[in-house]
Design a protein around this nucleic acid. Sequence first.
DNA 1: GCGAGACCTGAGCCTTTGCTCACATTATTG
DNA 2: CAATAATGTGAGCAAAGGCTCAGGTCTCGC
Lengths: 229, 229
Amino acid sequence: MSSRTTARRHRRAPSAPKTLDVPRKLPRQERAQATVEAILRATAHILRTKGWDECNTNAVAKRAGVSIGSLYQYFPSKEALIAALAERHAQEGLKILVESVAAARAREVPLSFEATVFHYISAMVTLHSHDPELHRVLVEQVPRLPGGQEVIRRTSSHAASLVRAWLDTQREHLRIVDLDVATYMLVTAVEAIQHLQVVHRPEQLSREVLVTELTHLVLGYLGVTRAGR
Amino acid sequence: MSSRTTARRHRRAPSAPKTLDVPRKLPRQERAQATVEAILRATAHILRTKGWDECNTNAVAKRAGVSIGSLYQYFPSKEALIAALAERHAQEGLKILVESVAAARAREVPLSFEATVFHYISAMVTLHSHDPELHRVLVEQVPRLPGGQEVIRRTSSHAASLVRAWLDTQREHLRIVDLDVATYMLVTAVEAIQHLQVVHRPEQLSREVLVTELTHLVLGYLGVTRAGR
DNA sequence: GCGAGACCTGAGCCTTTGCTCACATTATTG
DNA sequence: CAATAATGTGAGCAAAGGCTCAGGTCTCGC
């Protein structure tokens, strides 16, 4: 059986509008919240260690120490389960970013332009060092989930708005004309390099070199002049 | 059933070393070559239009107009089938790159440094415009295939060697010290931006803008001074 | 303490699909 | 024109795993 498309297509209610509610039912008691939590943790663990294929709902329920029925009480399908995990992962990531921006803004002595870039890049690299295996699996599989593209779009666009806002305050230092395009390029480039780093994990670049080079890349693109390497 | 890991794990020959030969048997007659060709085309078509999940071996055989048995005569598993397609796709891509480099080298009046970068970037963008749907699916799924990482590694490293060789002839123009790191950054950044462009296809950037901005990115990183936008 | 509803259980139904095998057809060789 | 090898066929096996349902247990307000 195809792990994905098959799901939720059984005989019952053939005309019912495919309920893709996430979660199907909200946990109201503490007990239930613990169940949901255990399920999500188990999902993350299996995804991380065994990958998408071994991550079937029976295995998740087993590892979570709950019955398969409980799982389906809160998640209408395997897709919804993983989508929920992805959503959570994305929110955690955004939180780190937002905090990083806030930290930079809160400084009494503001950082220089270059130092700020360095600061943000470091935050991004740190972000991608958290649980890279899970990140890897999610990044690979979420796009194909129903609603997955939407999660990605929302998350990127939130991140982009942060960058865009900051660039806007720094116009004077930049050669850039179209800030939207510049934002897109920067967010994409930095995200994408991390992406490949995580997906193919070549162990090729140390964290320091990666941060330095990404900073060069960003500053170079923005047209900020600086001393040679 | 999980579409992937399950395969080729059936009762027969439990101790036999998992034959992952690709192809299992070489087509010697023209007829057989046509069969293999039809199978690969069908695979590409279904992957492109229906995605990984709908791309099961029965459907491929049906669309190819051959029996399922014939498919398994040449491809020992679904994974091997898609791996073969990926290999072919990668080779075609490399060919375009190599030709692009050859074309630049063969010019009587050599291009300027900037123009050369522009030329290569254009080639890369063109490359990713061919059959983006298929590219998208392959890029998403190949890493998880047995041997998929290897295909990716081989392909990238071939491409990287081309870039690295060219950079080496241009040392004088660059701020760069470590050419290996620079090569990695450039190949990764350009590839990755295209990657995201294809995967999320935001229709956000026109081809022209994309090429221009990528060129800026590369030149900026390399530390080549240029007139403002 | 009791009723209602929230929560949990897990055997097993049912579909999908990778893949085999016994046999048929077509090409090649001598 | 055999004989042999290469190629092609497709019904169907068997396993995997998503998901349901009929029934239990727990919690909480009154």
